[in-house]
């Protein structure tokens, strides 16, 4: 009898455990949306938009690292190129902001497909080095190419009107658009992780030879993950260009590739919500410690070292461990 009941308990546990996790995640999504909805009445909206753009960027990076098992050190290429294309489309071609952002995202995905095809054949540090090298080529191209405006970048990008109707001149109006982009991106990432595709990617990450022996082609899955991640990084970069009305060399510089690494590490690698927390911490430091000047980098470096040494699972990873829940 006792045996039967343990059987039932073990058999039922995954379904109810999964349901509980799902309910928790739904609650977090709703809570996050509510918080973001009231936030612009309490905090400066442009700062919030910066956090959201970088949070999406970090989430895109974390999708590839935490759920695809691939450490990219060249995500600035997709973020920055999308930023340029979006700025160019809005300013020179006069596209509406949503079309400009879509154009930037599409270019980032194409770039991701080409770079990804070259990079996914390598693993670990070699993969990181290939992505870095390719991103450096994009940087060089951005310095040389006329359309990027070289050292000046593309300035005074018009924010325009959504669908040609709603003006983005007001920070708060634009904020809700950015919030929608961010929530959409985050929901997409969540769906990717919890899809049949996500399951196969998880299996490949856990035991690649075994996945091959079951008939899966890891390179195809890694490439698909890479393109998704590059596209979402592009979406973040393209949106950022509209928000700050600027696309510049900073966006494609290798140090920009380091930002999502730091944010993801602080927030928690392989957690859904960690990179958001990480982005909030890093962007807040950059903004509110700005008076420290060059010392911001030192403080950042210190936090980075602390995170690596004693706080490995990151903020959200730590909370998840305490709650014994996936977050």
């Amino acid at each position: 009898m006792a045996n039967v009941s343990t059987t039932v308990a073990a058999g039922v546990a995954p379904a109810s455990g999964g349901d509980r996790t799902r309910t928790l995640h739904r609650a977090i999504f709703i809570g996050l949306a509510l918080m973001l909805a009231v936030a612009p009445f309490l905090v400066y909206p442009v700062f919030l938009m910066k956090v959201l753009c970088f949070a999406l960027f970090a989430c895109a990076f974390n999708l590839l690292l935490g759920f695809g098992g691939l450490m990219s050190f060249g995500h600035a290429a997709y973020f920055g190129m999308a930023s340029y294309v979006s700025a160019h489309a809005a300013k020179v071609w006069g596209l509406t902001p949503e079309l400009a952002i879509l154009a930037g995202t599409a270019v980032a995905m194409v770039l991701g497909a080409v770079f990804g095809a070259l990079a996914v054949r390598r693993k670990g540090i070699y993969f990181a080095m290939v992505t870095l090298a390719l991103a450096q080529m994009v940087y060089f191209l951005s310095v040389q190419a006329p359309f990027t405006g070289g050292e000046d970048g593309i300035q005074a990008v018009p924010r325009g009107r959504l669908l040609g109707l709603i003006s983005f001149a007001d920070d708060r109006v634009l904020y809700y658009f950015v919030m929608a982009v961010f929530m959409g991106g985050l929901l997409l990432i969540y769906r990717v992780i919890h899809s049949p595709f996500g399951q196969v990617c998880k299996a490949i990450r856990e035991n690649e030879p075994r996945a091959i022996s079951l008939g899966y082609r890891p390179l195809h899955y890694k490439l698909a993950m890479f393109v998704l991640s590059a596209g979402l990084a592009g979406l973040a970069g393209a949106t950022k260009a509209i928000v700050f009305q600027l696309a510049s060399l900073t966006d494609v510089h290798w140090s920009m590739s380091g930002e999502p690494v730091l944010m993801t590490l602080i927030g928690g690698i392989g957690t859904v919500f960690g990179p958001i927390a990480g982005a909030l911490v890093v962007v807040s430091m950059q903004n509110y410690l700005a008076h420290l000047g060059a010392w911001v980098t030192v403080v950042q470096g210190g936090i980075f070292i602390l995170a690596v040494l004693i706080f490995r699972e990151g903020i959200v990873g730590f909370i998840a461990g305490r709650l014994k829940q996936q977050l």
Partner: peptide, 22 residues
């Protein structure tokens, strides 16, 4: 075990579907 059975659906590139389809 499900990862292996999933192979019967063919490739699993459907990142837009919920894992509950499985």
């Amino acid at each position: 075990v499900r990862i292996a059975l999933q192979k019967k659906r063919g490739e699993s590139f459907d990142f837009w579907r919920s894992e509950r389809t499985l």
